[in-house]
Design a protein around this nucleic acid. Structure first.
Lengths: 146, 146
DNA sequence: TTGCATGCAAATACTTTGCATAAAT
DNA sequence: ATTTATGCAAAGTATTTGCATGCAA
């Protein structure tokens, strides 16, 4: 009943038990997650899988266009998510790292217009940087400034 | 003659010799650089400065809106740059991490329209993700797929 | 002088790698 | 049969933290 059975799969990647498990678990996530979280989710389901293997599989997925890597401001580790067209962008406070989701993508499909013969556009990432209400207070200037 | 003399400076941050040196060196950079690079540039100029201090100063600058942090795909470390409105976005190959600069910002000033009472927008980051010409070849699918 | 900043060194993550074994085609 | 993937453990690298000392206001 796993989705991985019927999905396009790169010829270069063997369909191992481990990779199919990673594929299914990652596909079940509503938002990108870290390699460690994925590792823990899989092991909680009795999939014995090594930590380094998770990284290797995720890298392979990214290299073959099945997954997307992101490094959000305020997260200490890299996140991975399946390459789906439905994605979410965030505003991030540069001081406390609070995040707020944007309901609309500011780019929409327009990023695909950048597509050229030399570069195939697959996705994009956007972060709006600034300060949340409570952190604005720390932006004070010296009395003599401005 | 350093620019740091005449610039707005948050009241909460003491104007120490070390911070002024970091400010000037970072301001001189055309593109964001890592804490390590900054550390090396400063020490090459006879500024004895500790590595951890560079991190602490950069974090303080980010918290006070003087600098921006970014974590580009394919770079193993965090980059820092002064918060100037002139910035560059990149297309990044998800396999080999080759980067190509975008000449125009796809958002322009429109990201500022997101500004609300609750969140003060300062900047934004965009990455266009995809595959360069030579890496497209690795995206092949299984014969039976699709 | 008082509190914040810095240096040093050690600790903490996170991620990658080597190599022997196991599994997929 | 051959090639590629995995597990384990160890190494590598970036970043953070504690604490004693130094400096700015």
């Amino acid at each position: 009943m796993s989705t991985s059975r019927q999905t396009n799969w790169p010829a270069a990647l063997k369909r191992t038990r481990t990779r199919l498990a990673v594929y299914d678990e990652l596909s079940a996530q509503p938002f990108p997650i870290s390699a460690r979280e994925l590792f823990e989710l899989l092991n909680a389901k009795d999939h014995h899988i090594s930590f380094s293997t998770v990284y290797r599989i995720l890298d392979a997925f990214v290299s073959h266009g099945m997954a997307i890597q992101s490094k959000p401001t305020g997260d200490s580790n890299v996140l991975y998510g399946m390459n789906i067209h439905r994605h979410t962008h965030f505003m991030v406070c540069m001081r406390c790292h609070e995040k707020r989701a944007l309901h609309d993508c500011p780019l929409g499909a327009s990023s695909l217009q950048i597509d050229t013969d030399d570069f195939m556009v697959v996705s994009h990432q956007i972060e709006i940087l600034g300060y949340c209400k409570s952190c604005m207070a720390y932006l004070d200037k010296t009395p003599e400034s401005n």
